[in-house]
Design a protein around this nucleic acid. Sequence first.
DNA 1: GATCATGCAACTCCTGTTGTTTCAAGAAAC
DNA 2: GTTTCTTGAAACAACAGGAGTTGCATGATC
Lengths: 150, 150
Amino acid sequence: MRSDSRLSRMLHALIHMDRHDGAMTSEQLAQMLNTNPVVVRRTMAGLRDQEIVRSEKGHGGGWALNRALAEVSLLDIYRALGDPRLFAIGLADDDPRCLVEQAVNAAVADTLAAAEALVIARFGEVTLADIARDFDARFAAVMGRKGSEA
Amino acid sequence: MRSDSRLSRMLHALIHMDRHDGAMTSEQLAQMLNTNPVVVRRTMAGLRDQEIVRSEKGHGGGWALNRALAEVSLLDIYRALGDPRLFAIGLADDDPRCLVEQAVNAAVADTLAAAEALVIARFGEVTLADIARDFDARFAAVMGRKGSEA
DNA sequence: GATCATGCAACTCCTGTTGTTTCAAGAAAC
DNA sequence: GTTTCTTGAAACAACAGGAGTTGCATGATC
């Protein structure tokens, strides 16, 4: 399957929302994410349930952040999306009778569990504010280059 | 998609092959793996190309190991399968213009790269012999329980 | 030459994200 | 109060990639 890009899309959207005055519509977000307003609403639904964002209908409605960027970690978003499956590889049978397969599963599952723990830990340490700061640095770098061109 | 179980299937098959006298047919392996001989041949093809196993046609033909279990790491098998995609999640766009998305990508890709490095390192450290030893321990444990039941 | 086994091509099936259409419902503007 | 804008939700098609399946060619052994 093509890979699940909901996490990165939501991060992208949330940071833009933070820099935007007032609510952003699904239509605006969809254009930014190069997709479709329905996909935006569907994906944002989980974040709304977790009160990371709020949505409002009607004129002037749309989506807005409900918390400061520094108060939202990548893990919060990952969880709000329903803990999407992390790995594309897995076991042939989760509870096999064959002892050989049990030994194989233990070896593979151990490694994947360690990798998953690492991902979860790192997602928990990084906030949206960290990413926004990195964006600011990238922006400053581009501006610096443009200035020196003149 | 349901997850890619080629790695665990191959590990399972290879250890059985090691404990088996003579070549094993795709049909025999397929029954063990609860699948189809064509799937076995298709998946084993990569291992044959890497000379981890060999195959022979005709009467008495089938598949046999080409190396000692201790000389084959999980990473060798993973590589022989063509480095299957490890993660189910990914970036929306690998090379975006938007600086916000670049910052998001950096954060997500960093974490995934660290997790992938961990998986690759651990796969490189574990050999088929390690798994076979674990199987022996499990087998001994079962035998021990059965003995004490009598 | 009959039989057994792999090699390979060409499908279909399955599963989960993504894309799309459609309509109901609520909120602001006029 | 009607129009307009927006989300909410259901329903379905598109797509991707592993898995399953069929059919047949090729080669080795009996």
